[in-house]
Simulated assay, not measured.
Amino acid sequence: MSAPRKKGRVYGVGLGPGDPELMSVKADRLLRAAKHVAFFRKAGRAGRARKIVDGMLRPDAVEFAMEYPVTTEIPLSDPRYNEVLSGFYAEVTAHLCKLTAGGEDVVVLCEGDPFFYGSFMHLYERLKDRCEVQVVPAITGMSAAWTATGTPITWGDDVLSVVMGTLDEDTLRDAMARADALVVMKIGRNLTKVRRALQAAGKAERAVLVQYAAMEGQSVCALSDHGGETLPYFSIIVVHGQGRRP
């Protein structure tokens, strides 16, 4: 009697902020050995995560592009947004579970760290009770951003806060005012609101804008020197702490 077939595993592999040389050794090893590789992307796009690993996958790797059904077409406040995305994650989860039930391992590519504001988190919550999942952590985009500024982000007892530009202006202002050091993400079309909140919190003069940290086209400048009203997705604003030093 033959032994029962061993089930496969899903690996949520953090790729880091964009430079392949900043991946962990474990991430590199799993990627190069993977037979099945899944990654998120917008419809019609190659996908940023997939671009990061160009030339690293084995020639016979089976790729599974998980294409978002919506991105900004429906407002976040519209109930249809969560409904459509929930259906999408359910379909993807079913496909990955089918592969693991057949004994196949699957590497899911994750920009940055899988557990830090990434799409993989939504898969993980659906997968963890249905199949074996292992998460491979990575350097976050915000870490690459403050490193690109050439200045430490925190000193001594500084309190670091990470806030989203999608928050309402009052919440943004209050969070910014309480923090010693600050990272602002998900800015995009919220830049004007973020500027006002930084000004009200007394941090606008110290705000530094980093675009495409650790990627091709990286740029760093004082936020006050940027005249636009919007920013690309891979943009982060950093305010360095000024805490205790020996």
Results as ranks from 00 to 15, higher is better:
Ala3Glu: 14
Ala3Thr: 14
Pro4Thr: 11
Pro4Met: 09
Arg5Thr: 14
Gly8Glu: 05
Arg9Trp: 08
Val10Gly: 05
Val10Cys: 08
Val10Phe: 04
Gly12Leu: 11
Val13Tyr: 00
Leu15Lys: 00
Leu15Cys: 01
Gly16Pro: 06
Gly16Tyr: 00
Gly18Ser: 05
Pro20Ile: 05
Glu21Gln: 08
Ser24Trp: 03
Lys26Gln: 09
Arg29Gln: 13
Arg29Asp: 08
Arg29His: 13
Leu31Pro: 03
Arg32Asn: 02
Ala33Ile: 08
Ala34Phe: 00
Ala34Asp: 03
Ala34Cys: 03
Phe39Gln: 04
Phe40His: 07
Lys42Glu: 14
Ala43Thr: 12
Gly44Gln: 05
Arg45Gly: 12
Arg45Asp: 14
Ala46Arg: 15
Ala46Phe: 13
Gly47Ile: 11
Gly47Lys: 05
Arg48Tyr: 15
Arg48Lys: 15
Arg50Gly: 06
Lys51His: 13
Val53Lys: 00
Asp54Thr: 11
Gly55Val: 06
Leu57Val: 11
Arg58His: 12
Arg58Trp: 12
Ala61Val: 07
Ala61His: 06
Phe64Cys: 12
Tyr68Thr: 13
Pro69Ile: 04
Val70Ile: 11
Thr71Pro: 10
Pro75Ala: 05
Leu76Val: 13
Ser77His: 07
Arg80Ile: 07
Val84Arg: 03
Glu91Arg: 15
Val92Gln: 15
Thr93Gly: 11
Thr93Leu: 10
Ala94Gly: 12
His95Arg: 15
His95Thr: 14
Gly103Ile: 02
Gly103Val: 01
Asp105Trp: 00
Val106Asn: 01
Val107Tyr: 00
Leu109Val: 04
Leu109Trp: 01
Pro114Ser: 02
Pro114Arg: 00
Phe116Ile: 07
Met121Pro: 07
Met121Lys: 09
His122Ser: 11
Leu123Asp: 06
Leu123Ala: 05
Tyr124Gly: 06
Glu125Lys: 08
Lys128Val: 11
Arg130Met: 10
Cys131Glu: 08
Val135Pro: 05
Ala138Val: 04
Ala138Tyr: 04
Met142Thr: 11
Thr149Glu: 07
Thr149Ser: 04
Gly150Lys: 10
Gly150Met: 11
Trp155Asn: 13
Trp155Ser: 14
Gly156Glu: 10
Asp157Cys: 14
Val159Gln: 15
Val159Arg: 15
Ser161Thr: 13
Ser161Lys: 13
Val162Asp: 06
Val162Glu: 06
Val163Gly: 09
Val163Gln: 08
Met164Ala: 15
Leu167Met: 13
Leu167Pro: 10
Asp170His: 12
Leu172Arg: 05
Arg173Glu: 14
Arg173Leu: 11
Ala181Cys: 03
Val183Pro: 03
Val184Pro: 01
Met185Cys: 03
Arg189Lys: 13
Asn190Thr: 04
Thr192His: 10
Lys193Asp: 06
Val194Tyr: 00
Gln199Arg: 14
Lys203Met: 06
Ala207Glu: 00
Ala207Pro: 02
Leu209Ser: 01
Val210Ser: 02
Gln211Leu: 06
Met215Gln: 09
Met215Val: 07
Glu216His: 09
Gly217Ala: 03
Cys221Val: 05
Leu223Arg: 00
Gly227Pro: 08
Gly228Tyr: 08
Glu229Phe: 12
Glu229Thr: 14
Glu229Pro: 10
Tyr233Trp: 10
Phe234Leu: 06
Phe234His: 04
Ile236Gln: 05
Ile237Arg: 01
Ile237Ser: 00
Val238Asp: 02
Val238Gly: 01
Val238Ala: 01
Val238Leu: 02
Val239Phe: 03
Gly243Arg: 03
Gly243Glu: 03
Arg244His: 15
Arg245Lys: 14
